[in-house]
């Protein structure tokens, strides 16, 4: 339990550090963004490393938050009195996706722009809220050089402020209720024996994790560098079949499958609606899981959780395979 949360925190630390470093050299705007990213990657010493770590940390952060949340879901750590922790955690996941989405536009290369446009298309298909959502996300209907500046400000000012505020609530709620420990919670065993002291045991483990995470990022940075691509031209519409950001792939694949079975319906709209409904059920778990047996997870919840994870995982894999 500490594990996934700690990794998330370490990644966040990496992100903030590299983000600040990139902030030193990045220039926003249609005619500067691409050039400055190119400058960072090629001219600034170890610029490639900083940029790659920022990129890969973001990817891993979303994965680790998701993993953190899945494990909390099955352990039912959201139950009273920890609802606030659960809700803020869910918000943090959404914010992380928003972070990743806005960050992907900033290098202003055509591939990432197409990707972001494709993600936007999916979001816009959401009933009722779609267009309003897009307004807040990109400051307009489509991404052009003009709202690049808007997206940048959201990425470096508004999102960090929101994120840290919600993170503060998340932590203070954890502090109030104590760290969730399933063994303490469900087995009335010897508490003191199982409880891990913060120093030195926990801190050494945390430090080991830091080294592992950092080394993993180093390895990814060296062997899988982030490409610079060609400069984006916002007048060109994305070619058919452009993939959205990897975190939206499962929505796209779902809508494609729906489209396959019922060609006449708007696959994207139904796909995103289904995803939003499932997400609502998932995120509102503290509200409907009150009556179940205290120590045992209900069959419905078990199967619901497992099927959601399998669905997302499989759809993403299928989409990746289909791309090749």
């Amino acid at each position: 339990m500490y594990f996934s949360g700690t990794v998330t925190l370490l990644l966040l630390f990496n992100l903030i550090l590299t983000g600040l470093l990139l902030f030193l050299y990045y220039k926003e705007g249609n005619s500067f963004a691409y050039e400055s990213v190119e400058f960072i990657s090629y001219k600034v010493r170890f610029g490639w490393l900083v940029r790659a770590i920022h990129y890969w940390s973001a990817v891993l952060l979303i994965l680790s938050i998701a993993f953190h949340m899945f494990s909390m879901f099955f352990l039912r750590a959201y139950r009273k009195p920890r609802e606030i922790t659960w809700f803020t955690g869910a918000l943090l996941l959404l914010l992380a996706v928003w972070f990743s989405y806005s960050g992907s536009v900033l290098p202003w290369n055509s591939k990432s722009l197409f990707m972001a446009q494709s993600s936007t298309e999916i979001l816009k298909a959401a009933p009722l809220i779609g267009n309003t959502l897009a307004d807040y996300l990109i400051g307009g209907n489509v991404i052009t050089g003009q709202n690049l500046s808007f997206i940048y400000k959201v990425h470096i000012l508004i999102l960090p402020a929101l994120f840290s505020f919600i993170l503060y609530i998340h932590f203070s709620s954890i502090k109030r209720n104590g760290l969730f420990n399933p063994e303490i919670e469900y087995n009335s065993g010897d508490e003191c024996k199982k409880k891990l002291p913060i120093y030195p045991n926990f801190s050494i483990r945390a430090f080991l994790l830091l080294i592992i995470v950092t080394d993993l990022l180093f390895i990814l940075a060296v062997f899988s560098p982030v490409e610079i691509g060609i400069k984006a031209d916002d007048m060109i519409t994305a070619p058919q079949g452009t993939m959205p950001g990897w975190y939206f792939l499962f929505v796209l694949q779902l809508s494609k499958i729906i489209h396959l079975f019922a060609a006449e319906v708007n696959g994207k709209q139904i796909g995103i609606t289904i995803c939003i409904c499932i997400g609502m059920v998932w995120f509102l778990a503290p509200l409907w899981d009150r009556i179940s047996n205290k120590s045992k997870i209900s069959t419905f919840q078990k199967y619901f959780g497992i099927s959601v994870i399998i669905l997302i995982f499989c759809l993403t894999i299928i989409a990746c395979v289909a791309d090749y």
């Binding site: 050494i204 430090f207 080991l208």
Partner: peptide, 8 residues
Amino acid sequence: FAALFLKL
């Protein structure tokens, strides 16, 4: 890693 592991 090795040193810390042994220590732990």
